[in-house]
Simulated scan of single mutants.
Amino acid sequence: MRRRLIPVNVVIAALVFVLLSLDPDQSKPPPVVMERGKAVYAKECLSCHQQDGLGVQGMNPPLAKTAWVLGPKRELIKIVLNGLTEPIEIEGDTFHNPMPPHPHLTDQQIADVLSYVRNSFGNKASAVTAREVKKVRAEKKI
């Protein structure tokens, strides 16, 4: 019996179809990242930003649906690494409590917690990778 070969263009078309049908947000964190991130959040962030991510009025900013969280990942990573000492304004409210730096966290822990925050409290944003954190941390040393 003779085998029938599938033309290359048919294989390529099938691959393109499969790739286009995938979820467009391939960077959504997997459950294990969310679990690890939640554990880091509970230890490092919960007391200030609260269980619901809404912070404390006038002191600690909310993490729910804000440009600070949903915006550029690089800026968010810098805040975790360097802390934040000046007041910030979010939707007309000013928050004064300084955030301490967290350089003791590993690149993976920072990636996990930021991925968790960017996908909790009503947020939907791409995951943060340890590689992205490592790059920002290296820039700080320059």
Rank of each mutant, 00 (worst) to 15 (best):
A42T: 13
D52A: 04
T129D: 00
A130L: 05
D52C: 05
Q108I: 01
L70E: 11
L54K: 13
N119C: 02
H102E: 10
S120G: 08
N82I: 10
G71C: 02
V117G: 06
N60C: 11
P24I: 03
A13Y: 01
V8T: 10
T94F: 09
V128W: 01
I90V: 12
A13W: 00
S47K: 14
Q109M: 00
K78N: 09
L20P: 03
D52N: 14
L19G: 06
E91P: 08
V16F: 05
V56Q: 15
V32I: 14
I77N: 01
N60L: 09
H102S: 10
A13V: 01
G71H: 03
A42W: 05
R4S: 04
K73T: 06
Q51H: 13
A138E: 12
S47C: 11
P31H: 08
R131Y: 04
W68E: 13
K140N: 14
I90A: 02
Q26M: 11
K43C: 09
I79V: 14
A14Y: 04
V32Q: 12
S47I: 13
A127V: 03
I79K: 09
G122V: 06
I12Q: 06
V8P: 09
T94W: 09
N97Q: 13
G122H: 07
P29E: 04
R36C: 01
L54N: 14
L70W: 10
T106G: 01
L46S: 14
D107G: 01
D112N: 08
A13G: 00
A127I: 04
Q57S: 15
K65N: 15
S21L: 09
V18S: 02
Q57C: 10
E89W: 07
A64D: 08
G58F: 11
V113H: 03
A138P: 06
N97K: 14
D52F: 00
F17K: 04
S47G: 11
L20T: 01
Y41A: 05
A42N: 12
A14G: 03
A127L: 05
S27G: 11
A125L: 08
I90M: 13
D112H: 01
S47Q: 15
M1C: 08
V18W: 04
T94E: 10
P87C: 08
V80R: 06
H96C: 12
M34Y: 06
P72Q: 12
V136R: 02
F95C: 07
P31K: 13
T129A: 03
P103Q: 07
M99N: 06
A127Q: 10
V56E: 11
G37K: 02
P24D: 03
H49R: 10
